[in-house]
Design a protein around this nucleic acid. Structure first.
Lengths: 146, 146
DNA sequence: CGCAGTTACTTGAGCTCTCAAGTACTGTAA
DNA sequence: TTACAGTACTTGAGAGCTCAAGTAACTGCG
């Protein structure tokens, strides 16, 4: 008994796919082109920059960037190679690793931020009315938390 | 003069990222697990199945699935290996290639569809009211076409 | 204490995606 | 008619992601 999509649901679904893909690709392209990093790496740097001591445990960081531990582990390995993040052992729990944003990493984030924010505005906020932005927030929260 | 995000825009933006990632991952995981194909391949099969003669030119197909030609070319190559799609030369334009959905491809799509549609409902439509669905459609259309 | 069972994280293989470069054909205009 | 720019598509290399498996350390219960 499959509950197939009605034709208007079908339209919403396809618009959703097209819109979200557009946003993703636009952001990834902009960051890659102008700052040499994918969007996921940017988010990692951003979350670390907001944390106490610019430091987070891997699992905590994974939660904040909506990433699997595996993905984050690979990402941090690359960021470490670039000297943007370093790792340290967690003192409390020897299984745990801390990811620490370096000064170079903070500088890279700072350099990338204006272009990124501008891209976010252009692709998502500028096309919408303030009311639509508010509604989108509610909708996304519902989907995220369901 | 960067137009930074206000704190409520910030919240909407992060909810948007979390929600869209959740949808994407849920769908990809479900299709990969239950049908052995990524979501992008499913969309390719679906678009071909709706086309006249289950056939489309590569460039036309790329437009319909919101894909670069390169990505589509790789994807169709894999689908061809599985026997789900075959290629033929375009009679009008010798540069052009046609992608044709095979019977096996149609069967694979048909087998995958119910589970996929159910996942789409669960992750996107069920958490929203009908009014929110309508609004989401308008919002995504605006973002897509901007 | 001791040893399952769980948690935290890493690693490697396989796969998809992107970007840049390459091939082949088409349309146009001198 | 023959260049020459543009279009259609493919290919290969490099990079990130996923999944499964591996290591190490903590936790709790007999």
């Amino acid at each position: 008994m499959t509950r197939w999509l009605e034709s208007d649901e079908q339209r919403v679904w396809r618009a959703f796919l097209a819109a979200t893909q557009r946003v993703q690709e636009e952001l990834d392209r902009q960051l890659q082109r102008d700052s040499g990093m994918p969007h996921t790496y940017y988010v990692v740097l951003a979350m670390l920059s907001e944390a106490e001591g610019r430091t987070l445990r891997m699992s905590d960081l994974a939660g904040r960037v909506n990433s699997s531990q595996s993905r984050l582990s690979h990402a941090v390995a690359r960021l470490e190679e670039r000297g943007w993040v370093r790792r340290a052992q967690c003192p409390r729990d020897k299984r745990g690793n801390l990811a620490i944003l370096t000064d170079a990493g903070f500088a890279a984030l700072k350099a990338a931020a204006p272009g990124h924010v501008e891209a976010v505005r252009q692709v998502l906020f500028d096309p919408l009315t303030p009311e639509q932005v508010r509604l989108l927030g509610e909708i996304c929260t519902a989907v995220r938390d369901s």
